[in-house]
Design a protein around this nucleic acid. Structure first.
Length: 682
DNA sequence: GATCCTCGAGTTCC
DNA sequence: CTCGAGGATC
C-alpha cells in the first residue's frame, strides 16, 4: 500500500503548498496593500487547516511557512549582527536655511564631479518615528533581521521581526536576487497603539508611553510571543547590500522594486524638484501630520539618481545625498520648577506645574495642568523632576510622565495643602472624589473673583470688557464684592483706579448697562449654582414659571425638571435658601436686571427639527455658537459629544476626533456646504 | 447595579 | 479638549 500512501502524501503536500501561497497572498493584501480580500473568518479557516496539516505531517513544515511567524521559544539574549553595509543615520535640517545649504552642497559636489544637475530631483517621503531595521533575504527567504545598533553592528531581532505581518517571510516574484538586504522602519500605527493601550488599561497591564518607544521596545522583547501581540508594521525605504541583482538607476525605481518584492512602501512618497519642491512637500505633509495613521518627526529627501548618490558618497556618520527635514518636536523634555495650586470657582484645588519654558509643537510651553491631586500622585511629579511634555493633536500641554533616572536626590512627593493657598480656609478632600476643595466659599477671594468672572462671561451675562484683569482690580480695590455692586458702579469710583480714564469707565458702565436686559436662563447660569451650567439653567428656566416660583420650589418639584436629579436639586434649593444669595439677587433686580418674557419662539419646521446634532471643526461662514443658536431655533438639540443617539455630525475645517467617532458609529456626516444649504432652506 | 450619555468645570497659548 | 460625575435607562 506504499504507493497509495505516497500518493496521499503528495496530495497533502500539494494542499499545504497551496494553502501557504493563499495565506501569503492574503497577508500581502491585508498588511501591505491594506486591502483585505476575504473575511477574517475565511482567513482563519485557511490558517487552521494549514496548521492541522502541519501538525499531522511535521515533515511538511517549512521555515518560511506563515504558521512559523512566532517561533517556538524565547531567546536567552540578543546575538550581534555585523552589517555588510553600515546603517547610517541622517543629517538633520531644522529650517529652510539649513535645507538650502544641503541642496547647495549637493549641487556643488556634483558640479565638481563634472555633473551639471540643475534643479536636483529628490525622492521625498515621511520620516517615521520608529526603529530602523535591516532585513537580509537569501534566495528570496528571510534569513535574519537586525537593528541599527551603532550602525556597524546591530542586534539580531529575527525572531521578533518574523511576527510582523507586513514583513514578507518570502519575497514575491520569479527572479529573486541571491542576496537582498532591505532597510526599513518598524513602527506602531497610531490606531494600533491606542487599541493596545486601551486593552492594557482594561486589564490593568502596563501601558506603552508612545508609538516610537513602543516600536523599538517591542523589537527588544526576548519572547516573540510578546512581540506578536504588538500591532507593529514596517515600511521599506532602501537597500543594503545586494548580490546578483541589477540595481535600478533611481531611488524611485528602488521603491517600486521593493513594492514588487512584496514590501509595504510609504504611500506618501513623491518625486520633487529643488528646494521649492522640498518645501512644498514639507508643508503639505506637515498639514497632514496629525491625520496620518502613524507618527512622523519630519520628512526625508534623497537624491533620486543612484549614480549621483554614489558620486556624493558618505561622510563618517551620514550619507551626503540625503537629509532629514525635522518638524518641531511634539514631545520635549523639560524641568518642573514649581508646583502650585490654583483655586477655581467652586473652590477646587488644581495643581499646576510651572515648567522651564520649552518649545513643543510650535509654541513655548511654560505651564501644564496636573488636573487634580490624584493625577499628580499617580504620575508622582516632583519639583526638580525632568518630565516629558506633549502637545500633540490636542492643543493643551500635558505632562506625559516623569523621567525617573533624572530625578535629583532628596525630593519629596508633593502634598495636598491643608489650607487654601489664597484664603487659608480648610481644604477638604471627600473620599472617592477627584477634587479637593477650599471650604472658604465666597469668603475666599479666589472663588469670589472666579464667580464674578463667570457671571460676566460671554455665555452668562456677557458684560463686554469685564475680564479677569479688571475683576481683579475691582475686587482688590474694594469696589465690588458681589455681582450686585457691578450695577451700582459710578464713573467717579472707577476713575480712581490706576490707568482708568473717563472713557474706559464709561465703556464699562455701558457694557454693564447693556447686560441688564437678559434672559432668565442666562441669569440663572450666571449665578454659578453648583452643577447648574448652561444646559441645566435653560432647562430650569423653561420648566419654572419665573424666578419667584423657582426660589420657593422644593427638591421634589425641582426633580421634575429634565436633567435634574436629587443632587442638582439640593444645590439649587440650598442656593436659594441662603439669605445672602437672596439678598444679592434682590439687589440686582432692584437695580434694573430683568428678562423680558420672550414670546415662545415659533419653531420653524426644517430638516434639523427634532434631530440631535454635533458640530466639529471650524465653520467658515459662521461661528459654532451662531450655528448652535440657529439650530436651536429650528428645534434641534446640539450636544458636545458623538454617541449613537447623534443624528448628524456637521464637519467644518480641521475636524477633531469627533469625525472619527462619527465614522466608527456610522453616524451620518454633513459638510459645511450642505449644512448651509439646509439651514437657509429651513 | 451597571452602563451609557451628557453636562459641568477646568485649562493653554496667541 | 478631557475628565469626572450626575442623570437616565435598562
Amino acid at each position: 500500500m506504499a504507493t497509495h500512501d505516497d500518493k496521499r502524501d503528495a496530495t497533502v503536500s500539494a494542499e499545504a503548498a497551496r494553502l501557504r501561497a493563499q495565506i501569503r497572498e492574503h497577508d500581502f493584501a491585508y498588511y501591505v496593500l491594506d486591502d483585505p480580500r476575504i473575511p477574517d473568518a475565511e482567513y482563519d479557516r485557511l490558517f487552521s487547516r494549514l496548521k492541522e496539516i502541519e501538525s499531522e505531517h511535521p515533515e511538511l513544515v517549512t521555515a518560511n511557512s506563515p504558521t512559523q511567524r512566532v517561533g517556538a521559544k524565547p531567546i536567552g539574549e540578543f546575538q550581534e549582527i555585523r552589517h555588510d553595509r553600515p546603517m547610517l543615520s541622517l543629517d538633520n535640517a531644522f529650517d529652510e536655511v539649513e535645507l538650502a545649504a544641503f541642496d547647495r552642497r549637493v549641487g556643488e559636489r556634483l558640479a565638481a564631479a563634472g555633473i551639471s544637475a540643475g534643479d536636483i530631483e529628490y525622492v521625498a517621503e515621511p520620516k517615521l518615528d520608529g526603529a530602523a531595521v535591516s532585513l537580509r533575504y537569501t534566495d528570496g527567504l528571510l534569513e535574519f533581521a537586525a537593528t541599527r545598533g551603532d550602525g556597524t553592528t546591530g542586534e539580531d531581532v529575527t525572531h521578533n521581526v518574523r511576527t510582523i505581518g507586513a514583513v514578507p517571510l518570502k519575497l514575491r516574484g520569479n527572479s529573486l536576487p541571491p542576496v537582498l538586504e532591505v532597510r526599513g522602519e518598524v513602527y506602531m500605527p497610531r490606531a494600533g497603539f491606542e487599541k493596545f493601550n486601551a486593552l492594557a488599561a482594561e486589564r490593568g497591564e502596563k501601558m506603552l508611553v508612545n508609538p516610537r518607544n513602543a516600536a523599538s521596545g517591542s523589537l527588544r522583547q526576548l519572547d516573540p510571543k510578546m512581540t506578536a501581540e504588538r500591532p507593529l508594521a514596517m515600511f521599506a525605504y532602501g537597500l543594503g547590500a545586494t548580490e546578483g541583482w541589477q540595481l535600478p538607476s533611481t531611488h524611485a525605481e528602488v521603491l517600486n522594486a521593493l513594492s514588487a518584492f512584496g514590501f509595504r512602501v510609504s504611500p506618501d512618497w513623491k518625486l520633487v524638484s529643488g528646494i521649492q519642491g522640498c518645501m512644498a512637500y514639507y508643508s503639505k505633509i506637515g498639514q497632514q501630520r496629525n491625520e496620518l495613521p502613524y507618527e512622523i518627526d519630519g520628512v526625508v529627501y534623497k537624491v533620486n539618481n543612484l549614480r549621483w548618490q554614489a558620486e556624493l558618497g558618505s561622510a563618517s556618520r551620514a550619507p551626503r545625498w540625503a537629509i532629514a527635514h525635522k518638524f518641531p518636536a511634539q514631545e520635549e523634555l523639560t524641568i518642573v520648577e514649581a508646583i502650585e495650586f490654583q483655586v477655581g470657582r467652586t473652590g477646587a484645588l488644581t495643581p499646576v506645574a510651572r515648567l522651564r519654558p520649552v518649545f513643543v509643537g510650535g509654541v513655548t510651553v511654560s505651564n501644564a495642568t496636573l488636573h487634580n491631586i490624584g493625577d499628580l500622585h499617580r504620575k508622582d511629579v516632583r519639583v526638580g523632576d525632568t518630565v516629558i511634555v506633549r502637545r500633540a493633536g490636542d492643543v493643551i500641554p500635558a505632562i506625559v510622565k516623569v523621567v525617573n533616572d533624572r530625578r535629583p536626590e532628596r525630593t519629596t512627593a508633593v502634598k495636598l495643602p491643608k489650607r487654601c493657598p489664597v484664603c487659608a480656609s480648610d481644604v477638604v478632600h471627600p473620599e472617592g472624589e477627584a477634587a479637593a476643595r477650599c471650604v472658604g466659599g465666597l469668603f475666599c477671594p479666589a472663588q469670589r473673583k472666579q464667580a464674578l468672572r463667570h457671571f460676566a462671561s460671554r455665555r452668562a451675562m456677557d458684560i463686554e470688557g469685564l475680564g479677569a484683569k479688571l475683576i481683579e482690580r475691582l475686587v482688590d480695590g474694594k469696589l465690588i464684592e458681589t455681582p450686585a455692586e457691578l450695577y451700582g458702579l459710578t464713573v467717579e469710583q472707577l476713575t480712581e483706579l490706576e490707568r482708568m480714564g473717563a472713557k474706559s469707565a464709561r465703556n464699562l458702565l455701558d457694557a454693564v448697562e447693556r447686560s441688564k436686559t437678559t434672559t432668565f436662563a442666562r441669569f440663572l447660569h450666571a449665578l454659578g449654582i453648583r452643577n447648574v451650567g448652561e444646559a441645566t439653567a435653560a432647562a430650569l428656566a423653561a420648566h419654572c414659571d419665573g424666578l419667584d416660583a423657582l426660589r420657593d420650589s422644593d427638591e421634589q418639584r425641582l426633580c421634575e425638571v429634565p436633567d435634574v436629579g436629587p443632587i442638582v436639586a439640593a444645590h439649587v434649593r440650598a442656593f436659594f435658601q441662603e439669605p445672602h444669595n437672596r439678598d444679592v439677587i434682590d439687589k440686582m433686580l432692584a437695580r434694573g436686571v430683568r428678562w423680558p418674557r420672550a414670546a415662545k419662539p415659533e419653531i420653524v419646521e426644517s430638516p434639523f427639527t427634532g434631530k440631535t446634532i454635533v458640530l466639529t471643526g471650524a465653520l467658515s461662514t459662521m461661528t459654532r455658537d451662531d450655528a448652535k443658536a440657529r439650530l436651536l431655533a429650528l428645534g434641534a438639540k446640539v450636544t458636545g459629544s458623538v454617541s449613537k443617539n447623534t443624528d448628524i455630525v456637521v464637519v467644518g475645517e480641521n475636524p477633531g476626533s469627533k469625525l472619527e467617532r462619527a465614522q466608527d458609529l456610522g453616524v451620518s456626516v454633513m459638510d459645511e456646504a450642505e449644512f448651509g444649504r439646509l439651514l437657509s432652506s429651513g
